[in-house]
Design a protein around this nucleic acid. Structure first.
Lengths: 206, 206, 206, 206
DNA sequence: GATGAATGAGGGTTCATTCAT
DNA sequence: GATGAATGAACCCTCATTCAT
């Protein structure tokens, strides 16, 4: 049909952009590319967005945010229990990160790291990414700290460093994955074999 | 320096491009930007390069290659000794990676990950990166394997996975570093505290 | 009001256009600007006008016409009297010109001279302006001629030239006014001090 | 020839713009229009100007400035003489205004009044016009004042007002001329017949 | 009457590339 | 080697206009 609802077209534009920016990056993506890919003409883009930049922000908010909001509360409640299994919690979080990026993890990864690169020249994007990372960092640190308090996580390395290592290995696997999509992403959890003290350690990779 | 020609201007172009592409990325960089920054005019670019793409390849070869060639031979010789200290070797390799990126690590990181992103749409770049990664992967695996043979590295996780983890944590710290340049890059080595078996583990700095 | 239809929205559109075109000119004015300013949306513009051009003509007719029709008859009757005071009549006409442009003289002036400029590329506008000017010219010439016949206006310069001078000084003050809105528009009448013969010249206001 | 000197092309662009903006106005003029009219393509415009706006300023400076600088000094010297003929001086100034607008007075007038209109939305243009007008106003006032001091110009109207009237009538004739190019522009000088006291008034040409 | 999605032409601007000088 | 004028394609964005709802 020639006339769709605004909401639908807007969603299509965001979806298409997310897909396409994984390949070419946001800058190299033309509005014509986007609109043609959804069967519309260039001019009508501006019915839905004030500018290309606004589109980027929308894509960030709706497609690239590895938000943990929904999960966070449950986790915090779980953590406060005396007998909580911190390793199980941590692995749940890692899984969530994977699955939250949607079915097409590679697409997500390229789009996301495009954004990281883009942040160098766009303050707004940079702040958004920093805040994103802060949230994750704080969230993870809380878990690690609790693990150490409960004697489940080793204490030979300090809390912040362990947190950084966890984050680094997750994003590092993103990068390896982009270079070689055959990599088994679940390997990430092996670091837990070392991080957690032995008697806590019955699990042996998936 | 590994410049293939002795031409001074050509070298200047490559250096300037490497510096500038960290900020804006290669695509967003215009030939005018580059040539102006070295006090020349646009037209003379084509005296030195057939195209902008060729320039990218030249930058890759001379500035973004985390080559390990020089070091590799020495390492292999060292590894073959009966009493070699694998942890020391590994840390030397990690240090080399850091320092090989030059004084300005952040510049290097942005430029390199620009390239990674760029690889999605450029076969040549993709192959170059894959080959780059293969070399490193093979090299590291050799070291890890030797460490396991000698009983210095734990064997509860298989060789390839440990290799991947080492690589992931190195590139992961690159990414964290891009998000937050205050991060202490030497933390990377803490994974060795866990990876190596205890009596091998005298080092404890932060 | 001289709006041809009773339609409220149509009137609003015309008014808004008149106001807005003083700032940006008619060409630079978008239909979106106009409709937004009256709290309607772009699409409904075409319920009221066939095209943007038609709107211009409507604005011309209803807001930019310095028509003298109403006044003309009275003046003619007055002029035919033996003892008529031509200077008083002329000043009444001048005042009428000022006040006919509405409260916001500056708005009127910019809009009108926009139109004059526009006339260069639009035959219809040009003809309208020419006819407008002809009417005024004829009307004024009649007054001047009568003044000369009665010995009230000097005869050292011929009728048509005096008429032109009167018109020029009126529109000239429009222009000075646009450049410097502090100018005292009533100065225009000082030319009468010279134009009329001395014993006719008791008036001296500023 | 395909490659001209920059100076020549720049001049051609300015000339063409001056000609074309009389018809369509500066805004309605596209860079494509301009460049096509001089046998070049749109892209090369930016070799010569940073932006379309910069072109406007250049046209203003080189084509629309009714500068009086050259003449001013001579006039001032003349004025200081005891027996100077102020009317002759004033008529020389008026003539200069006419001729300084070049051969094609109508073109000049439309371009100039386009600019005046444009000033409403461009601060820089507005200031330029104001300063332009100030210079003229000051210059003319000096002449009028001297004329009054010497008893050559009537004193029943104050200096500033006479100055304004002179300016108004000059620009007013510009406008009449735009409406009707047949008008005899030299009529402007007839106001001098009234402005100067009688015994000074031997001149009577049309 | 009004809405707002869609169109298509065109505008200013950028840029890799070519080429006469 | 270097310059800088010129090209032509592409880009983001604007806008008068149309039309289904």
């Amino acid at each position: 049909m020639k006339y769709s609802t605004g909401k639908e077209t807007k969603r299509k534009i965001i979806d298409a952009t997310f897909q396409l920016m994984a390949d070419k990056g946001f800058d190299a993506l033309s509005i014509d590319d986007i609109m043609t890919s959804i069967g519309r003409t260039k001019g009508s883009f501006y019915v839905h967005f004030k500018s290309k930049e606004e589109l980027l922000y929308e894509v960030m908010r709706t497609r690239l945010d590895r938000g943990h909001g929904q999960m966070a509360e449950e986790i915090l409640k779980e953590l406060s229990k005396d007998n909580c299994n911190v390793r199980a919690i941590l692995e749940r979080v890692t899984d969530e990160i994977h699955s939250s990026s949607g079915q097409n993890r590679l697409t997500w990864a390229f789009a996301f790291y495009h954004l990281l690169i883009h942040s160098r020249k766009n303050e707004f994007v940079r702040e958004w990414l920093e805040s994103n990372e802060d949230q994750w960092s704080n969230f993870l640190r809380m878990i690690v700290k609790r693990g150490q308090e409960l004697g489940q996580i080793r204490t030979d390395v300090d809390t912040q460093t362990i947190t950084n290592m966890c984050m680094a290995i997750v994003v590092g696997y993103d990068i390896l994955f982009m270079l070689n999509p055959q990599i088994d992403f679940s390997e990430v959890n092996h670091i837990h074999d070392w991080m957690f003290v032995n008697d806590q350690n019955p699990k042996n990779e998936g």
